[in-house]
Design a protein around this nucleic acid. Structure first.
Lengths: 242, 242
DNA sequence: CGGCTGCTTGATCGCTCTCAAATGGGGTGG
DNA sequence: CCACCCCATTTGAGAGCGATCAAGCAGCCG
């Protein structure tokens, strides 16, 4: 057994989408082929343009994947939390990473190189089908975001982004739902295709009406249903008929 | 042999990305499981929200896939030509089509239902890997478009869209490259996240400077390099240093 | 406690959408 | 074959959303 992976870790691994449907022995085999890589906040797992050697599954922490344009504009492709796959470029035959993966918090991830992954897929073809499912979901997700960007105004897009982030990385606290990792105005702007100035203005507005409460890289949603109203363009709250 | 598929058709089928790497006998097996479906212009292969039963590969003609928002805005997800896969939702376990596939010209397509596809994948696992590759490419493509939409101005996005359409469906004619299928201002607008008015204005401008020549659902690019300049934001032509 | 980094806020500009109306090409039916 | 009608397109005027430029402010970490 190449690497001594802890039992609780293996349990999480068996719940990862990519390895769903594998039995205990098979998960052990997968775990044995994994290399564990830790990063502290602001370090990167890989950089845009680098040769794509590794697939990762995040074990602990939070990362963001961002793409930089030739002009220097940045766009957030996605956030990922524990149990989520990222850097899956080698899986589908890509040769270079199209974006950079940056640790937002201190992180730990499993990594498999291309050769290991190919071997695992031959051993357990189910992995390929799971990967297919993952990519399909990812495709649907980005298409939604594209549609939003093409047809909705900034305020709606930010509302949607926050709701999504809350549902995948939200923590219930007294008074609302807290985004459980550091999230700057800039991050939100790069996620929704706007500027940090506009995000700041909108969050300030929401704060005044009591919808959210936010500080330095920290956002708490006090009334999710209010954000839903905004996202669906019921203008300001569900009171339209005077 | 369930269906008598013509020999030239089988040759095209063997060049389709999804079936790459299969030998003649295997392609025959694939062909045998296919159902041929013809549509005339403006008919649809499937509609958004319908149960996703079929995967298609276009044999002849051209289709567009578009998504409609609850508010009625439309966004073009992609165009597809001969040899291209579309409606591949069942491949990755989706249950409903996220968009509608409309024939732009008269079309002919092969179709496999989910059961047939599952059987083929078990017979020839290579198909699953090809599908993975296809989805990865699709993902990269839509991410580029997202990035453009988030960071570039309308004029650049239209220039890029035209160049892309020209490279996948362009025909060299005297005086330039002709988009070889009917393409309206509205289509371009839905592809680039703008309005037909803005597209019309921009094309008119380009026509006056001799960059393109266009008419009713017809566009010819006279100077592709000029469009490249615009796409890469060298403002107007490669003359910046006075 | 100091400096850095992230946030706020004002003022202005301009790109692009919206609304409105006219034009013209092409296919269809008589 | 011609005339008509429909649909795609063009073009104008105006408004407004959001970007850009420019300071100033405030947590937080070292």
């Amino acid at each position: 057994m190449p690497l001594p992976l802890s039992k609780p870790s293996r349990k999480l691994l068996s719940e990862v989408m990519l390895f769903r449907g594998l039995d205990a022995a098979q998960v052990d085999e997968v775990a044995g082929a994994a290399k564990v890589k830790s990063k502290s906040a602001n370090q990167s797992y890989f950089r845009q343009g680098q040769e794509a050697r590794w697939n990762y599954v995040l074990n602990r922490g939070r990362i963001k994947v961002l793409q930089t344009t030739p002009e220097g504009h940045q766009v957030v492709a996605r956030f990922a939390g524990a149990g989520e796959l990222f850097g899956c470029v080698p899986l589908y035959g890509g040769t270079r990473y199209p974006g950079s993966a940056i640790a937002i918090t201190s992180c730990e991830a499993w990594a498999w190189d291309k050769a290991a992954m190919d071997r695992l897929i031959v051993l357990f073809p189910r992995i390929a089908l799971n990967a297919l499912e993952f990519l399909g979901a990812e495709l649907g997700h980005i298409r939604s975001r594209f549609q939003e960007l093409a047809t909705e105004r900034v305020e709606q897009r930010i509302a949607r982004a926050l709701l999504r982030l809350a549902s995948q990385g939200g923590k219930k606290v007294e008074g609302g739902v807290q985004i459980a990792f550091p999230l700057s105005r800039q991050d939100l702007a790069e996620l929704t295709g706007t500027t940090l100035h506009t995000v700041s203005r909108i969050l300030s507005g929401w704060q005044q009406t009591g919808l959210v409460e936010s500080g330095r890289r920290r956002i708490m949603i006090k009334h999710p249903h209010g954000l839903v109203s905004i996202a669906e363009d019921l203008k300001s709250g569900p009171s339209l008929i005077p």
